[in-house]
């Protein structure tokens, strides 16, 4: 299950979705909005997506993970819109029979999301704003 949503990410329903009768391991990764900046405290973050492509790229990543590891159920939920520090920006959940598959698939998915999925994050300060990663 893949979703891109402006609503807060609901960990409890994700966990419910991840249940499987053959489950031996569930790895759940939460990416949390962090204040990256040293001196200037961040007021909020704005996440923007090229929705159609973000979803299809996440689907490709999930398909590739399915090829590589033995996955019983998975969910990838990415938030967009305005987020405050401490909020969950992304949830990745992987259910497998054996734990190595869960850890490896989960890590592959988050690492690849950060490289290929068209989602952009802007840090907003009281006195300005910066698109993360955009400048050299």
């Amino acid at each position: 299950m893949i979703a891109l949503t402006t609503d807060p990410i609901d960990v409890a329903s994700a966990l419910k979705y991840l249940q499987s009768s053959q489950a031996g391991a569930i790895d759940l990764f939460l990416g949390v909005v962090r204040d990256n900046t040293q001196d200037r405290p961040v007021d909020r973050l704005e996440y923007e997506a090229y929705d159609r492509m973000a979803i299809s790229e996440m689907q490709k990543i999930a398909d590739e993970a399915h090829q590589r590891w033995s996955i019983l159920r998975y969910t990838i939920i990415h938030r967009k819109g305005t987020l405050l520090t401490g909020e969950i920006a992304v949830l990745i959940g992987i259910t497998t029979a054996h734990r190595a598959d869960a850890f490896e698939a989960c890590r592959y998915i988050i690492d690849t999301i950060k490289q290929t999925v068209p989602i952009w994050k802007k840090e907003i300060f009281t006195d300005g704003e910066v698109w993360v990663n955009a400048h050299p």
Partner: peptide, 10 residues
């Protein structure tokens, strides 16, 4: 067609 600047999701 879309321009894709460096992504920063996740």
């Amino acid at each position: 067609i879309a321009l894709i600047p460096p992504v920063s999701g996740g």
